[in-house]
Design a binder for these strands. Structure first.
Length: 256
DNA sequence: ATGGCCACCGAGGGTGGA
């Protein structure tokens, strides 16, 4: 069973890349963030043609999350973690005996922004939701773009005064993890842990990145994980000839 | 070696991303 999280930065612009990814890597569950399209523009037929079904929570222009899967989704919750009803940042469903929860956490912009307060409030709601989900489901994994750097070693440049790295953000993530979740990250020697690189300044080329895309597994889920991979090759222009423009994030996969 | 901002809306440049 392969489970992947990937912030694609527009599902329609990235559609050729996503279809190639499904074909090349054959994930069982692919969780996407930043769809940036309304429900009627979501390319569900293309995913069905590729042998997958999809559930999605969409809004025009911003945000949006979906779960693309080989098997059928049950117990679907559309946007269970929500402050503003217009903001579609969460979706959850059960596949077999595994509960999958997909988040696109608020970015927050900067520490003195109102969006930062919104981020912390959103994370507080997420914690309450996950507490209940963990009571209900033994095998559970919460994945997504968390927009939080868990540890100093997960950032090329770690600055506590900067968004993604502040103490309050990391404490909010810690509170979520302490509910009974385990970060499924497994280091690879001679390879950075990063999952996101800025488009600007040749950041990917220089490996100036951050690990902000996470898969957090319950204990019973974590014990089944055999492999963890960041598929950095999707970040190269040459990887997908139909669409050389890549997402700024790489897909992160676990296999269990 | 790879890459050197991108995508949205809307009609141009402002906004958000991280």
């Amino acid at each position: 069973m392969k489970i992947v999280t990937w912030n694609v930065n527009s599902v329609n612009v990235r559609l050729p890349n996503i279809l190639k990814y499904l074909s090349d890597y054959q994930p069982d569950i692919l969780c996407l963030q930043e769809l940036k399209c309304s429900e009627d523009k979501y390319p569900v037929e293309e995913f069905i043609a590729a042998g997958y079904e999809s559930i999605q929570s969409c809004q025009k222009t911003y945000n949006g999350v979906s779960i693309i899967s080989k098997c059928k989704a049950k117990e679907i919750e559309n946007n269970p973690v929500c402050i503003d009803k217009e903001e579609k940042r969460s979706i959850a469903a059960t596949y077999g005996d595994i509960r999958i929860i997909n988040f696109y956490v608020v970015n927050g912009q900067s520490l003195n922004s109102e969006k930062y307060i919104h981020k912390l409030n959103w994370l507080s709601k997420a914690e309450k939701y996950l507490k209940n989900q963990l009571i209900k489901y033994k095998k559970l994994i919460v994945v997504g773009d968390f927009n939080i750097v868990p540890n100093e070693s997960d950032a090329y440049e770690f600055c506590e005064e900067s968004i993604l790295c502040s103490l309050q953000e990391r404490e909010a993530l810690d509170s979520i993890i302490k509910l009974g979740l385990i970060d499924s990250y497994i280091p690879v020697s001679d390879e950075s842990p990063y999952t996101w690189w800025d488009y600007r300044g040749g950041a990917f080329h220089r490996d100036i990145g951050y690990r902000i895309d996470l898969l957090l597994a319950s204990k019973d889920m974590h014990s089944t994980i055999k492999k963890y991979e960041v598929h950095k090759r999707t970040r190269h222009k040459s990887w997908c000839e139909d669409q050389p423009k890549t997402s700024d994030h790489a897909p992160v996969m676990i296999e269990c």
